[in-house]
């Protein structure tokens, strides 16, 4: 991976998190620039949610660092920590459980301001007003309770609450997968518009590759706690290098009944992280396995053929 410069909004360095014997996240390096979107994709158990939690300080890393604006977020105190909480926000999958049902929209949306900033009531109202308009709601809806809204509207409320403190980074954890198909497009368009307007960076955690292609500038593909491929989004979709990425892309559903593509059906399931395979962790399921080297040696990160494209696989020269 390239060494990122200090100006990066977000950077992970050799990030590790162990739960007992399970290495949920096992040595991640990635970076994200302001106003850009990095997607972390992978299947259950790959460590993408743990990664999001480490960035949000909901988990402490076992080793390694998460830097936001060059500062290690796990060593912050006092004013610096308060500043971090303003600058880094999150939107989660399920807008039914992420909003307190007993609070009105105004206090849900204003909460990050009230907790972290000393502002007058008028100023808070003004900011709530503005952010509700920005997410496509009417200011008078601030008086309502969450149960009065549909799933899509609730997600807009959650987004408003994440935006109000003018964050530099928002973690989007499967932000549209609980929404109806006809609503997803609205919300994804909204994320894009807001990114331009607020110049906010997104770290998107998703399993749906369509969502990822639409939203992301860069993509990190994870398998069993490690990044197996890292590339600019278009390059990854057009020229996937890692056999796992290739299988993942081939498993996406067709857009038309006449679409034919070679489907790589992987045998078996993701092995238990309690007892990960030695060498390359993907080797027991890999259709392109070379031989003993894959079972013995952890593949180093190699050049993936394009700028910013790297792959951890023995198939490619070091």
């Amino acid at each position: 991976m390239e060494t990122a410069d200090v100006a990066d909004l977000l950077e992970a360095r050799r990030l590790r998190k162990h739960f007992g014997r399970v290495a949920a996240v096992d040595g991640l390096d990635f970076s994200l620039k302001r106003g850009r979107t990095l997607a972390v994709v992978g299947e259950s158990g790959c460590g993408k949610t743990t990664t999001a939690k480490l960035i949000l300080r909901l988990e402490q890393p076992s080793s390694g660092q998460v830097l936001v604006d060059g500062e290690d977020v796990h060593t912050l105190h006092g004013g610096a920590l308060r500043r971090f909480r303003m600058r880094v926000q999150a939107v989660f999958q399920d807008p039914w459980s992420s909003l307190n049902p007993r609070k009105r929209v105004r206090s849900l949306v204003a909460e990050p301001l009230i907790v972290n900033e000393r502002l007058g009531r008028k100023e808070v109202d003004r900011r709530v007003d503005r952010v509700l308009r920005d997410v496509g709601m009417r200011p008078e809806q601030a008086r309502n309770f969450p149960h009065e809204f549909s799933g899509g509207q609730r997600q807009r409320i959650a987004i408003a609450s994440a935006l109000i403190s003018n964050p530099a980074l928002i973690i989007l954890d499967e932000p549209v997968s609980a929404l109806d198909v006809s609503i997803r497009a609205q919300i994804m368009n909204l994320f894009k518009d807001l990114q331009r307007e607020y110049e906010v960076g997104y770290l998107l955690v998703a399993h749906d590759l369509g969502t990822t292609r639409y939203m992301a500038d860069d993509i990190a593909v994870m398998y069993l706690g490690q990044i197996v491929e890292y590339a600019p989004s278009e390059d990854l979709f057009e020229r996937p290098r890692h056999p796992y990425t290739q299988a993942l892309l081939s498993a996406t559903l067709p857009a038309h009944p006449d679409e034919t593509k070679e489907e790589i059906v992987l045998p078996g399931e993701v092995p238990s992280p309690l007892d990960p395979p030695s060498g390359c962790r993907f080797n027991p399921r890999c259709p392109a396995k070379l031989g003993p080297i894959c079972e013995r040696t952890t593949p180093a990160v190699r050049d993936g053929g394009a700028r910013g494209h790297t792959v951890a696989c023995h198939l490619y020269p070091e």
């Binding site: 198909v181 497009a185 609205q186 368009n189 590759l209 369509g210 292609r213 996406t252």
Partner: peptide, 15 residues
């Protein structure tokens, strides 16, 4: 309005 993995859309047609 379906997001596709096979091409990059600039903008989705939302309902």
């Amino acid at each position: 309005s379906v997001v596709r993995a096979d091409t990059k859309a600039e903008r989705l047609e939302a309902i």
